[in-house]
Nucleic acid binder design. Structure first.
Length: 174
DNA sequence: CCCGTGATTTAT
DNA sequence: TAAATCACGGGG
């Protein structure tokens, strides 16, 4: 997932949200918005979209559409699997290991992800990438689907079932 | 419940 | 230029 200073920091993705193009009121690309910040969302799938918000937090998305089709998956939580000590050192406020990556900005802090990694090729890069679960794919019946978090302003899009998480996994946010 | 924090966006 | 917003996290 992330190589930082020669060390491997990794986790299994256990929570995501989808952001669907120009019609999705909750998406940064709603109504065709194309700005310096969201450029990566308009690019090819398989690349990172990292944005900065609330004056202190970064969030990481995997862009999932074709060029000019701004669809992305927000990575909301990981179950840490490698480099836990380094993650604990980066996440000074985390009191338990389930606090390490249980939120979109927490996981970025744990892995040392910031805007410098915006646009990273998540398939080919050596420092930030996604790989298939090795022997640990979750069956569909373990995936809970529901409304997204923190998008109340998005009116009819606020309630759409676009959040996905592993049932009962303690590393999920909220 | 409330607050920090500042880049980004949107309204003038 | 100025004001409002915000795909959040931490503390009480």
């Amino acid at each position: 997932m992330r190589i930082l200073g020669g060390q491997r920091l990794a986790g299994t993705i256990v929570e995501t949200e989808a952001y669907l193009g120009v019609q999705d009121r909750a998406a940064h690309t709603f109504n065709g918005r194309s700005t310096a910040r969201n450029t990566s969302m308009w690019g090819d799938g398989g690349h990172a979209y990292v944005y900065f918000t609330y004056g202190m937090h970064y969030c990481l998305n995997a862009v999932a559409g074709r060029p000019q089709e701004p669809i992305a998956v927000l990575l909301r939580a990981l179950e840490p699997t490698e480099g836990l000590d380094a993650m604990r050192a980066r996440r000074v406020t985390a009191r338990k290991d389930t606090d390490l990556c249980s939120g979109p900005a927490k996981l970025c802090q744990a892995l040392g992800v910031d805007r410098a990694l915006d646009g990273t090729d998540l398939v080919a890069s050596d420092d930030l990438f996604v790989e298939r679960c090795r022997g640990r794919a979750f069956p569909a019946w373990k995936i809970v689907i529901g409304p997204r978090v923190g998008v109340a302003y998005a009116r009819e899009w606020a309630e759409k079932p676009l959040r996905f998480h592993v049932a009962g996994n303690p590393h999920v946010s909220r």
